[in-house]
Design a protein around this nucleic acid. Structure first.
Lengths: 158, 158
DNA sequence: TGGGCATTCATGGGCGTCAATGGAATCGCT
DNA sequence: AGCGATTCCATTGACGCCCATGAATGCCCA
């Protein structure tokens, strides 16, 4: 297991800096990525972040379109154009761009959320709502497949 | 037999630590997992815990969705985002996160419940109720299916 | 077979280290 | 020199690591 796991909430100081959680820094270091790759999510009001693993995944997606085609260039613009390469200071902090902070509706606090091959940055309140939605969706999906027999279908969940 | 079996109730000290039952530690050691993987159950107000076996099960489920799809990110958030990799100290203790303790309604005591390939962590009172419900349902199921001819259908089980 | 001994475990606490955070100092560019 | 941006240092709180205690269990031997 060497992906991004768990979630952490950190504060942004008045200079716009925020500490990247130490476990995530370790994953990035193992990944060999200097700093942090980051762009607004296409699906949520959050930021997608990662290192080489994420970049490779993006390129893999782009490879599905013929180079120099209009679609390819459009996608490239969407990904690369809106993304930035954040560098960490000696203490492992980064400064988000204003555009990114706006895109995610972030004030003076944010939540790092591990998603395995990448992680997301959320405004904490929005993430709380998002997580609930995610769990409901997961339960619905699993009920649909009926893969796992539930020993106690009547009892409440959290 | 090398799964998680039986249940144990331990106390949480004022530093938030709790001893993982020695038998469970041995199972994890045999599994080769350093520490303990843990996330809130989707069905109950409890925590699901385990080692490599549990992680592989999660990855297997996520693999059914293409990366970057909305569902994939949702599921990742529900699993990885809500989970944590707890490391044990020299005495085999772990510290639950506040979020996890809240999710399971845990105060200063908790119950480890072996489920074979994984185990759960419950607030002791809630688990007592859960176990009763489970037994009632088991009896009902057996009556309904009539799977094995029961010479004494009126008497209780176990 | 009963008592004593050794070991394992759960639990409590002290202490050093690291991470998160805040602020000062320095550098670079104009 | 002025201003923003980057680098460096200080504080504080959390966490990991270590040792002590005490209870319970299993083992050995008389």
């Amino acid at each position: 297991m060497n992906g991004f796991v768990s979630s952490f909430t950190n504060r942004i100081d008045r200079k716009g800096r925020v500490s990247v959680p130490a476990p995530f820094r370790q994953v990035l270091a193992r990944d060999g990525f200097e700093g942090l790759y980051c762009y607004p999510s296409l699906d949520f009001s959050a930021l997608d972040c990662g290192g080489h693993g994420l970049l490779m995944e993006i390129e893999r997606q782009l490879a599905a379109f013929t180079p120099f085609s209009e679609d390819h260039d459009l996608l490239s613009a969407a990904f690369y154009g809106a993304s930035s390469h954040l560098v960490m200071d000696g203490e492992g902090r980064v400064a988000l761009t204003d555009a990114h902070r706006e895109a995610a509706g972030i004030g003076d606090e944010l939540t790092f959320v591990g998603l395995g091959y990448k992680f997301q940055i959320w405004e904490p309140t929005r993430f709380a709502a998002h997580r609930e939605a995610a769990q409901r969706r997961l339960v619905a999906l699993r009920r649909g497949t009926g893969r796992v027999a539930d020993p106690n279908p009547g009892e409440g969940a959290s």
